[in-house]
Write a protein that binds this DNA or RNA. Structure first.
Lengths: 208, 208, 208, 208
DNA sequence: GATGAATGAGCATTCATTCAT
DNA sequence: CATGAATGAATGCTCATTCAT
């Protein structure tokens, strides 16, 4: 039989993703506590009851948001490192610029701020995030630095420290933008900052 | 039998500071919304009613916390810049190391994370914080960079960009520590990082 | 074993009226401030939350009570005047007696006292009540008097003054009954008083 | 020794009266529940603690207000009746007009509305008020009517009913004025209404 | 599956009352 | 006597969660 499925049934599979997307938007903007499930539901085009059909409670929804949103982003970068040939500083720039790019458009880029705000209230989730995102991306950059050192392109520095020094500013600028965009009278362009940061970095990492 | 303890004491002068301190602790730890005034009161050794004796409502208490704790720290740094003589990179180090120092001990150092988390929910407060803290400290560092450029010590860069590049990593590391201290398996020493960051910076800012 | 009773039932249509009725009862008895929403809810057979499902807050509930209960009563009287034929004093009696009648039975008759008590605390509501009830009923009686004067049945008096003189005693007696029923050792019969008042009035209004 | 007493000691005797006066003002305006003791104290020029020096609690203060305010007013009228000679309708006018007069100026004239509002919450006080004011003034007028009937000046009516018919309108108009003065677009002059009411009455009471 | 009416625990806020000073 | 800091019970309101439909 090729009777088309009724409208709502076809939507069934899409529901969780739509709810997660709505929740991400609101959580990112207002934080966990200040977000009402009613609003999440409305934004997802369903009612409150439906949210509970797919998620046990607000906390589980929050966890799902983080889990679903966060992981895929890194895999792309990891393959980039894996397959890279050529100067390591070129790769560094590739990573930083594509990251800055994604930060400006991806809806998932609000997660950093959200996790920073809620980590202490969700220790289990914080651990997940740290493992899957923070440490992993730190490793990624540490890896690039290490290889650059091995190839003689960079001077000898602690790669993990360097990784922090590479990632922190970009995250921070993004987070600031999110938090204070309405009142900062001197907004930064994320990509311009990435470029500036990169220049500073490579000169700082070069042999003296 | 000794006289029974009085049920309470009049300590009008001490109360506000004690309440602010308690609020700072809890706000920093759990965020604004997740902090109950009952707990603030208990931690301050008073009852909820007393909190309302000194602060109009929860939001005003929040503002007071920010006002009282952040601003003084900056004033110290500003005089340091004013009175400085000698190499600008030395001043930069002085500022960064003393900042890192304070971050490790001062109870006020939780404010950054708090403001990041709550800014969008308290636009008015966010503006206050941006004006009084963010922009002001950015200016401070931009000033140091500018003078370093003028004296020929640093190469020509956009001072405001540089200021962001100087401040962001330290703030970010602190914020990360606060948020993920329980689950980060690779904790960082704030002062060591400050040193590392400084080295990278000065080499990055030097003429090539 | 029979099926356990459901914890609640969906009765969207019935709820608002039930809540208004409960609120009317309690407001009339204790006044606005002394009435707890918890009690209103209990009397309506729901919980506090449900009250807020239908009314934005306590004040809006109060307004709804007034709106729903008083206005309909007046409309009936207005049609009576419109359609009247015959002696105006007969109409006067009809109005007064039916009014007294309703006062004795209608649950809405507690509103006068309530409004008198709360008017200064709810200026907006007071205005609504004055426009929709006080002035309107005054006009109604002024109208009857005017026509009686035109027809030569009554002597020339200021109709608005007369209207006040007609309505005030009945309202006052009702209000007194409500307020002091428990302690007045000389209770009045409302309908008997209406009759007495009417007799006095028509003789007072007649040509000398 | 003729050393003058210290300032505050001289005030001691005046305090209760001042507090009662302040409380009367506020209770009359906002009702019992909506009046804060803090405001009473401020208006009386003392602090909250002082109120409790003279009155056990808010209820007792309320009772004192009613008791102190209410009684004296009637005594004057009673002597007037006692000593009257001449036409009873003249006395009636004297009573009504002086009453209207006092209503317009005496601060105590807000008590009626207050008692109407709070009677059911203060049954004991209601009884006191009914006995000392309501019934007593009703008797006063019933007395005048009775004597007028005996002297043949008025036709035979039930004097207690008539007393209600005499007093109710004046009280009602006053109460209305108080409650709705801010929004009534057709304000009445109390004395003009008293005159109108009197004219209606005497014609209504005259033999046909 | 989906809805949204109903729940009830939780919390901010108020204010009469107390009592150390 | 007088003050006003401190209390704590009371209550309006919110919103995550449940469940009858």
């Amino acid at each position: 039989m090729n009777t088309p499925l009724p409208r709502w049934q076809r939507r069934k599979d899409a529901r969780p993703a739509e709810i997660i997307q709505a929740a991400l938007t609101l959580f990112s903007d207002k934080g966990f506590a200040a977000t009402r499930l009613d609003d999440v539901a409305k934004l997802a085009g369903v009612t409150k009851g439906t949210v509970y059909l797919y998620f046990e409670n607000k906390e589980e929804l929050f966890k799902a948001v983080v889990r679903e949103t966060v992981v895929p982003a890194l895999e792309f970068a990891e393959t980039l490192v894996e397959e890279h040939q050529g100067a390591w500083s070129d790769l560094l720039w590739q990573l930083l610029s594509s990251w800055a790019e994604r930060m400006e458009h991806a809806t998932s880029s609000g997660i950093s701020r959200l996790m920073i705000a809620e980590a202490t209230n969700f220790p289990e989730l914080a651990r997940f995030y740290v493992d899957e995102v923070v440490v992993r991306s730190r490793r990624l950059f540490a890896d690039v630095i290490s290889r650059g050192i091995q190839s003689g392109e960079f001077r000898e520095v602690d790669p993990m420290m360097a990784a922090r020094a590479v990632t922190a500013p970009l995250v921070m600028i993004k987070v600031w933008k999110q938090s204070f965009s309405l009142c900062d009278t001197e907004p930064v362009d994320l990509k311009a900052f990435a470029r500036f940061h990169f220049d500073l970095l490579v000169q700082g990492l070069r042999h003296r």
